[in-house]
Design a protein around this nucleic acid. Structure first.
Length: 649
RNA sequence: GCCAGUGUAGCUCAGGGGUAGAGCGCUUCCUUGGUAAGGAAGAGGUCAUGAGUUCAAUUCUCAUCACCGGCUCCA
């Protein structure tokens, strides 16, 4: 007998060799129908695998991430079986799960291209196979046998994977006529899969290397109930409505013009207001934190980027230098602001007492992004960073780093971003030649970041090899409406640029010392930040930020003049007010402006005109009664300043 | 840059080998209405661009461009 500890810490005794499925059955038959996998001492396993020792277990259901992963992983195998049925000779790459479903990379028989029609046929076959409740068998296999099996099958991708595996750890899974190299775990049988949607087809390089062959990637998602699929599809539709490209067009925030060029956003008047408000907000926060604004040109001598090392690293893949017609000088569109700021630091001798110097600029930069990577406002070729560089003494580094994290927290709080994640990007210790700077400096910078995060109690994940070439970084990532992750705020510690630019300050000992530099951009870029903000709010911005705070609705054209007077008065008090003077009935004007989510609608007619008042309607709340224009201005001004005061806290 | 899909009015989309349609928006007129859609008339499209097949192409074929979904990349 063995002792099995359940999640509630109760202990049950079972015969040695009991399976997860049998344990579930011993609890309830319904549980046995719903359970997808089992966690045994923290390891997710197949329900059909025997348990031979005392263990702590947890039965994993659809609501458990590991349960869903097992479900989708088996679904990937089932899809592969369906594909192989229709296209024998298809070679299979990898078929993992993703956040929402799974995919399989396949190499179809020569000349075959998949279309959406194939997906529908595959879906039908998948359900057909699922209904037969094909059992899934796990087999441990020697490396030699695995090589033999897939050589016979003629699947070079699997062979390549097996070559990298250690003998004794290799397992294969088989269901129906389909056998796959796989670590598992899997469902007991395919009967659990009740609903399937193959979502899209894409190209993907084998092993993510663009020098390799491009395989066909089929994405899909499956569910244990048809209803869950329907709910998911509704969710997907809702998410599409929040797409910043769609809302940006509808709200007239920004546009692109092929005549101007790819990835070069044009900010429309309302978008410009939005951006201006965000800039104003951040400038105010930064002033409190001791930053000073600077302004630098959009181009810089090529030599500047040779000094910084950017030319050597990115020169070939950048917009190419511009030559002056007569002197033959070469200038680059600036791809970042740091070199310019370094030169400002060098403008005069600096004392240790002057540090830290915190230099901020909303600096527009230009980077050549490959055409296929451009994406709305999130990936563009011209963008404005809310950039700043902090030049400080080594003993000030940690404190400065912590203050930057505080600024980022203030911003996320002000805009109600709760679901962000933080990533520490370090250099790849096996690939040191990719980076510039000494080991010592890298180690100092990396430990500064790690310590600061620990001190702030920030939950982070650490990625090796993701650092910038000149230093490690801490990035804040936010997901868009469709669950794609985008990097927003970034903080980077840099010992290298100060060295390359020969930056110095005079210490208390009257000797020359090298400052440390922090690059930081809490928004990341105005473009990307606005994009993510739109998707989070669905375009319903807080009052302080929204381009149209108030729209005045005259009851009839007779009161347009009075509306104009009210509008002027409000705009003089820095309230953004417009007039809907269309020849429409008041009901129509209310409806249209409510649907545009204007926070305040002011209705003016005979009554209001005579008493110098406005009738106030708050978005979503209806009629709020009337008040004088002065008191409305005061009222809304107070609401804005309260919102901001709350954010600055 | 690579793989696949899409491209019809300002927007959302229907249609289809015989040179085009709806709703919304826009313009004009009627109406001057008090808290979520008043009525009428009208303007607006080289059907992405270029070539080919055909008596005839917006429709079929090919190429190009742009967009969309991924991949790679992202200082």
């Amino acid at each position: 007998m063995i002792k099995i500890t359940l999640p509630d810490n109760s202990v049950k005794e079972f015969n040695k060799g009991i399976t997860g499925l049998e344990i579930a059955e011993s609890i309830s038959s319904r549980l046995a129908k719903e359970v997808l996998a089992i966690s045994v001492d923290g390891e997710t396993r197949d329900l059909t695998r025997a348990i031979d020792n005392d263990a702590s277990i947890k039965l994993l259901l659809w609501d458990d991430r590991e349960g869903r992963e097992t479900f989708w992983h088996s679904s990937a195998h089932l899809m592969a079986e369906a594909i192989e049925f229709f296209y024998p000779g298809t070679k299979f790459g990898i078929g993992p799960t993703v956040d929402n479903g799974f995919y399989y990379d396949i190499d179809l028989p020569k000349g075959k291209v998949l279309s959406d029609k194939d997906l529908v046929i595959f879906e039908q076959k998948i359900l057909e196979l699922a209904r037969t409740k094909e059992e899934i068998f796990r087999t441990e296999i020697s490396k030699a046998d695995a090589l033999k099996l897939f050589t016979e099958k003629g699947d070079q991708y699997k062979l390549e994977l097996i070559t990298d595996l250690q003998d004794g750890t290799i397992t294969i899974y088989k269901q129906g006529n389909f056998t796959d190299l796989c670590r598992g775990p899997h469902l007991p049988n395919m009967g659990f899969i009740k609903a399937v949607k193959l979502t899209n087809i894409a190209g993907a390089y084998w092993r993510g290397n663009e020098k390799n062959k491009m395989l066909t990637r089929v994405y899909g998602i499956t569910f244990p109930k048809q209803k869950l699929l329907e709910e998911y599809l509704v969710l997907l539709e809702e998410a599409k409505k929040r797409d910043h490209r769609k809302i940006g067009k509808e709200m007239e925030l920004f546009t692109f013009s092929p005549a101007v060029g790819l990835g070069l956003p044009l900010w429309l008047p309302k978008g410009a207001i939005l951006r201006e408000q965000l800039e104003k907000f951040l400038k105010k926060v930064q002033k409190k934190f001791g930053y000073e604004q600077v302004i630098t040109p959009h181009i810089g001598d090529v030599g500047l980027y040779k000094t910084s090392g950017h030319f050597q690293k990115y020169g070939k893949d950048s917009f190419q230098p511009i030559r002056t017609p007569n002197e033959g000088e070469e200038y680059m569109l600036k791809p970042m602001n740091c070199p310019h700021h370094c030169e400002i630091f060098k403008f005069k001798p600096r004392s240790y007492k002057d540090l830290p110097v915190r230099m901020a600029e909303f600096g527009t930069v230009y980077r050549y992004e490959q055409s296929g990577e451009l994406h709305g406002l999130t990936r563009v070729r011209s963008f404005t960073q809310d950039d700043a560089h902090i030049f400080c003494r080594p003993d000030q580094l940690k404190e400065e780093f912590l203050k930057v994290i505080d600024i980022i927290f203030i911003i996320f709080k002000a805009l109600d971003f709760k679901n962000y994640s933080a990533q520490i990007s370090l250099r790849d210790p096996k690939n040191k030649e990719k980076y510039i700077g000494s080991d010592e400096n890298w180690e100092k910078a990396e430990s500064a970041i790690i310590e600061a995060c620990t001190e702030k109690g920030l939950k982070t994940k650490t990625e090796l090899g993701e650092a910038a070439f000149y230093g490690p970084k801490l990035d804040f990532m936010i997901k868009d409406a469709l669950g794609r992750s985008w990097q927003l705020g970034t903080i980077q510690v840099d010992y290298n640029l100060p060295e390359r630019f020969g930056l110095e300050y005079i210490g208390a000992d009257d000797k020359r010392h090298r400052p440390v530099m922090i690059h930081r951009a809490p928004f990341g870029s105005m473009e990307r930040f606005v994009a993510v903000l739109i998707e989070h709010t669905a375009g319903i911005f807080p009052l302080w930020l929204t381009p149209d705070q108030v729209v005045i609705l005259p009851i009839s054209e007779k009161y347009n003049e009075y509306a104009q007077k009210v509008s002027n008065q409000l705009n003089n008090s820095d309230i953004r007010a417009g007039i809907d003077d269309r020849n429409e009935k008041i009901g129509r004007k209310i409806r249209d402006n409510e649907m545009k989510h204007i926070p305040y609608l002011l209705i003016v007619g005979e009554k209001e005109c005579e008493s110098n008042t406005v009738s106030v309607r708050r978005q979503g709340e209806g009629d709020k009664g009337s008040m004088s224009v002065d008191s409305f201005a005061e009222f809304i001004g107070k609401e804005v300043s309260e919102q901001l005061a709350e954010a600055y806290k």
